[in-house]
């Protein structure tokens, strides 16, 4: 069954229309970037520091308060939307696989952005950037992007967010909206990679995917667990008590993702694979609109 069939395209178009009607001005290009620059809309003031352009000094304030303040203007520019798609083997688990939903969400977000004349680029990553779809613009490019997504396989090695972020910031120096679509199962922790994106001023939004077997594993007794990313084995005897502990650990992980994003003002969506992509995207829009 193809990942992007006619039904998917129909729902995608519907999603695009709904997003424009309901969330106009709150998404992608309709939103002002938070970049300060040479726009015409006043944003705020800051202290003058030697070397600043005198043209932006607010002489009226200097005359009143004898204080050198620099006027800042919100820069209007094309929004660059970077979709960072996790292609590690852990994304291939679940029924349906997390990777399928992640690709559908990626396509949907890309379609909405392209429809709003934003620039979109997709980066497939695992322990680093594996492949990427270069910045593109225009709704007509969506089919090429979908072909790119369909060609991707979730066969990468263990997720390494730090490595991804390092490579990404080099390849995409122009700041913009960075949507990370991953399960975040990074043995080294997801924070370092997101910290890099955050420090490089990318407006980051995290979409964490998981499936029900990861939340509520059913295994009991002696089992040999195989890590699909690393290939490591672990022989354990699972009891009800262990299952309870596991559920608590996993919930702690999800909470940590939420808390991290909340602490640093990152957008965050946590979802399982039981939802459809359009519901998920609408949910993301609603969440963005309430902020």
């Amino acid at each position: 069954m193809p990942l992007f069939d006619n039904d998917f395209l129909t729902r995608l178009e519907y999603l695009s229309i709904v997003s424009r009607k309901v969330f106009r001005g709150q998404l992608m290009a309709q939103r002002r970037t938070k970049q300060m620059g040479g726009g015409i809309e006043f944003a705020d003031h800051r202290q003058y520091t030697p070397g600043d352009d005198f043209r932006y000094l607010d002489w009226n304030l200097y005359a009143r308060h004898d204080e050198l303040l620099l006027k800042r203007f919100q820069e209007e520019e094309d929004l660059h939307v970077y979709l960072l798609l996790d292609c590690s083997r852990s994304m291939s688990t679940g029924k349906p696989p997390k990777f399928d939903l992640a690709r559908q969400v990626t396509a949907a977000l890309a379609y909405i952005a392209l429809a709003d004349l934003d620039r979109v680029s997709v980066y497939a990553f695992a322990d680093g950037v594996l492949n990427h779809f270069p910045l593109t613009r225009g709704k007509a490019r969506i089919l090429s992007l979908m072909q790119f997504l369909e060609s991707l396989q979730a066969d990468g090695d263990a997720t390494n967010m730090t490595q991804l972020a390092g490579e990404f910031v080099i390849r995409a120096p122009r700041r913009g909206l960075a949507l990370v679509l991953s399960d975040l199962y990074d043995p080294g922790g997801f924070r370092n990679g997101l910290d890099v994106l955050r420090h490089h001023k990318y407006e980051t939004h995290v979409v964490q995917f998981h499936h029900s077997a990861e939340v509520e594993p059913k295994m009991l007794g002696d089992v040999e667990l195989q890590d699909v990313e690393t290939g490591d084995f672990r022989k354990i005897t699972v009891t009800e008590k262990h299952l309870a502990n596991y559920r608590q650990v996993f919930q702690t992980f999800l909470t940590s993702v939420t808390e991290y994003c909340s602490a640093y003002g990152l957008g965050c969506t946590i979802t399982d694979t039981d939802v459809t992509f359009d519901k998920l995207v609408l949910g993301m829009m609603r969440a963005a609109g309430t902020k």
Binding site: S90, T93, G94, D183, Y185, P187, H210, E214, P217, M219, G221, D222, V223, E224, L225, Q226, D227, V228, E229, T230, D232, F233, R234, K235, I236, Y246, V249, F250, F253
Partner: peptide, 13 residues
């Protein structure tokens, strides 16, 4: 033992 593939063993660890 039964071999069960999982996304990651870091939580079990």
């Amino acid at each position: 033992m039964r071999r069960i593939p999982v996304s990651t063993v870091m939580f079990w660890e």
